[in-house]
Design a protein around this nucleic acid. Structure first.
Lengths: 221, 221, 221, 221
DNA sequence: GATGAATGAGGGTTCATTCAT
DNA sequence: TATGAATGAACCCTCATTCAT
């Protein structure tokens, strides 16, 4: 009871505060609450009741902004992907167009960015949700493949190809399997949500060790 | 009424056929059906009705073998883990006790085994389910960490330590991050269940390339 | 089927009528329907489906007002007890504080009240349910003992004690066994719900005869 | 698992022991177990599974002796009534045919017998069940009314009539309301199953006080 | 007769969705 | 727009009953 009471009080207070918030767009509130609930419980087990409560809106309000539960879910995942795509393209296409930065430096920079901006934040749950619920939402999987995977790996593959040509890379491993570059990142995300309490994982160090592995062999004379 | 009657007849017929099946243990039938349904829909969205139908038993029969939906789910995941553990220990402890086989060979052998026995079979769904539902079932995550992760990585880490001492490994990367060895395997599992239809992935080649990466750098003079 | 159709029509009609009913509080509707169903079938055999239908609400609506079937049951019994307690105390404490009214008159008055307000009404089913289901709901039995039995018999016992002292009563029978005063009332309730159709019982006359019995002996010289 | 295994072993053992019991009539075992379960849970909530376990027979066995759950229930109540009827008639008809024993003595004797043979034993649960479930089983109520109530009260009423004629009784209260004689007995049964743990009731003393009440007034000059 | 695995109808409960206000 | 009471389909689970052995 005390927990509920405390929570209620807090919510009531924040409600008053939020009411007056100027740009407190309901849609954003709902999306934020939905991320929380969906990543906590998964799509099927999440309750719109809880989303509404957390967003501090009425249950019916959700339906003013989203057709149904699935639309909310998919729009949530799509909305959050946009910045990732932008970031991705900025890094790969922009920074790499002239290959001013060596691929290894680029990889390290992206890895750091990914750890800081995704793995260390709530955003990692977006990735988890996509991995987790993707098989149940074919359109989502397809969308994600087209917009993120194909583009991201494609760009990386192109960049690796150039690195291979200009001698920065000695083997074509990364050209054939660009997936290798992200494997430890996915592993880190899964690890953090399941095993981190038993054995914490330093994601940044893991990524660095992995990249060192991929490039050190190449750079030896 | 005619529908019910017709259905009953049909079922009776197919039942008669199956009745004679020799080792068709009900419990196993249910577990197999459950794997199918759970990996298709996830825990929350799977319907026991469908499990029953797929196993060709009545809904109530499930409850003769499992306390409830969650017990069915957890026993499913635990039951399938045992062979993995056995395999794991046989390979690492057994084959590696005298380190007769170089770690690289061992890794390649394990990778092949994992691809053939897990990734290429229905068993990969077990791994997916654990990764996917683990956060919602803390006991399961803990069990899995204790029985599989801690043991597996522990054994691998010990073996890597010895490889480092006897010069087979030049860096301590794998001692610090034994997770690296499995990262591409997880990635392959996720890829296969979401993106394989868009772009098939050769898991075995991926694993080989990864292991080559890890060891080649060490073996250069 | 014709029965169902007929019922549906009736319900639709009455629903339209009820929609406009002013104070038709849903909670009260549900409680009234629940009393009907529970006293007809007992707790275990009563179906919430029927309660809902009788209250003319959807099944889910019940759960907006009551946590579950048991809560509905217990709140039903507790809600109905309050007026009884109030009545009880008004009569015994109020009217008896100065013992202005002889105990016999008081008993007759209470008996009449009980017959009219309880035995002759739907309320007798509340008493039946408590007697009937009490053993299965220990909290309910305790609540009832504390709030009604202990208080009611206690007050009556005190009043009887005074009557004994001031000579109105000659023996201490009622002080020792205040339960005696209510025994015929319980018997009447049971009789009415089982045997009244075979042999009607005049509860008021029964109570009067009983009270005469208890007091006549005392009043003889 | 260990609990289940242990229980199974125990049951198997005791079963072996019972197997050799000579007159261990299955039907009686089942009836005894049924009484236990029905009076603990009521008709609707009692589980035949538990009856079978308690009787140490298989679930199917029950159906060899009783058509269904309701038949078991009704036969249970009817079977147990017979001795009561016999006793009743022996006392009233037999002992009272010549009115050798004064009615008051007879009443006291019956009360004692009832307390000892019914209220103090498992048999009180039979009475409770009849009172409790009667309304749901019209045939049972009718059977009970015809075989027990009508006969018992009839015999008592006849005896009271004679007592009135021969001066043993001064008023016709008991002729009009023979139910009065049993009211405290029913009250005692209800009390014992609900409130006895809060406030124990001396049923025998209660009955005696009640009978004194009924007869003292008559016997005063 | 006796067993107990199997059945499946039935009921309690949840929760996405609607709609009158 | 926003609300939240109301809905009812859907799903888990129980348990009386059956039947092959």
């Amino acid at each position: 009871m005390s927990r509920a009471t405390a929570e209620k009080k807090k919510r009531t207070a924040s409600k008053a505060a939020r009411r007056t918030e100027p740009g407190a767009d309901k849609r954003q509130l709902i999306l934020a609450a939905a991320l929380e609930e969906f990543s906590q419980s998964g799509f099927a087990a999440a309750r719109l009741d809880d989303v509404a409560r957390r967003a501090d809106v009425a249950k019916g309000t959700i339906y003013l902004y989203f057709k149904d539960k699935e639309a909310l879910f998919q729009e949530l995942l799509r909305a959050q992907i946009s910045p990732v795509i932008v970031m991705l393209e900025a890094l790969l296409a922009g920074g790499g167009s002239q290959d001013a930065v060596p691929l290894r430096q680029l990889a390290l920079r992206v890895a750091d960015l990914f750890v800081e901006q995704v793995i260390a934040t709530r955003r990692k749950d977006i990735v988890r949700l996509i991995l987790t619920e993707g098989p149940r939402f074919p359109q989502l999987a397809e969308f994600y493949y087209r917009e993120v995977i194909a583009r991201g790996l494609g760009a990386f593959r192109a960049r690796a190809q150039r690195a291979l040509k200009n001698g920065e890379l000695k083997s074509d491993t990364l050209v054939q399997f660009p997936q290798l570059i992200v494997a430890p990142a996915l592993t880190a995300i899964m690890w953090k949500s399941m095993f981190d309490k038993f054995e914490p994982l330093d994601a940044k160090a893991l990524m660095k060790a992995h990249i060192d592995n991929l490039f050190d062999r190449e750079e030896r004379p």
